[in-house]
Design a protein around this nucleic acid. Sequence first.
RNA 1: GUGCCCGUAGCUCAGUCGGAUAGAGCGUUGGUUUCCGAAGCCAAAGGUCAUGGGUUCAACUCCCAUCGGGCAUACCA
Length: 564
Amino acid sequence: MKKNFFAQQVSLAIDEAIKAKKLGQLEENNFKPVCEIPKNTQFGDFAINVSSLARDARIAPPIIAQNIAQFIKQDGFSVNTVAGFINFKLEEKMLNEIVGEILSKKDLYAASNLGQGEKVNLEYVSANPTGPFHIGHGRWAALGSALANIMNYCGYDVYQEFYINDAGNQINKLARSLELRVKELKGEKVEWEEDLYPGEYLIDCAKRYIESNSNESYGDFAKADMLRLQKELLEKFRTHFDCFFSELSLYRNNEVEKCVQELDKKGKLYEKDGAVWFKSSDYTDSQDRVLKKSDGSNTYLTADIAYHKNKLERGFERLINIWGADHHGYIPRMKAAIDALGYDSSCLEVLLGQLVNIIQDGEQMRMGKRKKMVTLDELVEEVGVDATRFWMLMRSIDTTIDFDIDLAKSQTDKNPVFYVQYAHARACSILRKAVEKRLDVENKVELPALFSEEEISKIQEGIDISDLFSQTCDENSKEAAKALILKLEEAKGIIEAAAKLRAPYLLCKYSQELANAFHHFYNFSRVLSDDKELSKKRLALTLCFKIILAKTLDLIGVSAPEKM
RNA sequence: GUGCCCGUAGCUCAGUCGGAUAGAGCGUUGGUUUCCGAAGCCAAAGGUCAUGGGUUCAACUCCCAUCGGGCAUACCA
């Protein structure tokens, strides 16, 4: 990454400047240079602010910048200083290196070993198997799957897990609801009790139950059926789990009970009002929590603690959970439990996502299973996987998404995802045209293709594009090409940031900027022309763009179409 | 009441560890195609960064308070 490169250059220069006594009273180099891309490109392509050295050196920032800059060896780039900034401008040699590196590394250009193989368990979605996913689940599915892709690409070892809440009270309600639906279908008159699942999806489930002639219990059948539907949708939504972990299995393996006993042995439990309480307030929780209710059954938390213990026993170094913001109060008690069990709770990282509001007919609807709702399935059917994923990902998780159904359905062509995909299709089209026979419209004669397949693969292997900048062509074209290369160069830094900050939305933003840089380049530079040497260089840039954009989209689980 | 998230252009949102003239998309207005995909590109208009204080060479960014919106405060899952 060039940012790191320039930061290192400045660091070395500061060492030398200190040796040469050019930095006044500054004797030790503790400065960590931060390289940024200036908003105003006339300053340079990269910039490092050294103003903060002024205090220790007792020299004005502009002088410091100059005194450091003179120790930087300018090779492939030029240096200038303005105020307390040291600015760098890339020259064609370095731009050429970037293109060469992309062509040789291809879609691994932006990969890194940031994660150093850290074993990460990423748990997300984890819905009840009591019905179809709602739109909110779509946000967690998109977020989790994208984050897993990104982190794996950056050298983490991510294991994706879905916790099936198949053990609680809700399963009894589900069973009862299915039973009633089955009876209804058989012509019996039934009365619906409060608090069941009256959704129509259970009618279909009931039909399948009757058809299957199963002697399974209503509960088991409904659970399996719902889970199957959920899994089908997840696959379609490009969300792949390594493991679907059943809550019930924790009970069957006696892990819940063992976990409670262990907490008890460590003196973390007590009885009050006929219930068993966990002293979570010994840690950062605001109050103690019930593990065993007075009727003897466990709370949801109890099994969840056992589940997290299970994850840690499987050797994961880091546990990342994606939860809705409505669960934020749940974090301290889970961390308390992990500490109480003798682990370090700092390994647990909870990504709290703000909720998705559904707006339909101009009115906001509350997400909920019991009411009529728009399911994720319906949304995907209407706007497609690509657009749904992109919309769910393009905002920081700290922002509540207002998903306007009518807008999403009616104005899909205004979606930013199309803008990005269009750029990819356009690049593909140019690469196709390069090897296709052409038609001379005036004379109606067929002309041979500009390039042979062999010539194209030669470009793919690497090409020197340096004189793209020294050749006489117009300034706009040169600048657009340079801007495109610089934008391509950003990929690695952006993807690493997305991994480190657990923020896939950075890639949505980047994909738009990259697409914009390419459109801009396209408008000022005719790629295919009779000047074959020039065409080759521009084709190389088109190819680089295609590689990086396709990878970016791949990481967020959005397709990169060859044609639209 | 308490805790967490948010408040930036008409709308939806970016803004990295405190740095140069606060950015993008949509919408609005104007321009742009004999030629590789116009779902594009160029330009213009649009801002009291919720409010008030504090910290400092420098604050959208950090701290405190206030106002407004959302979420949570279960022996539900």
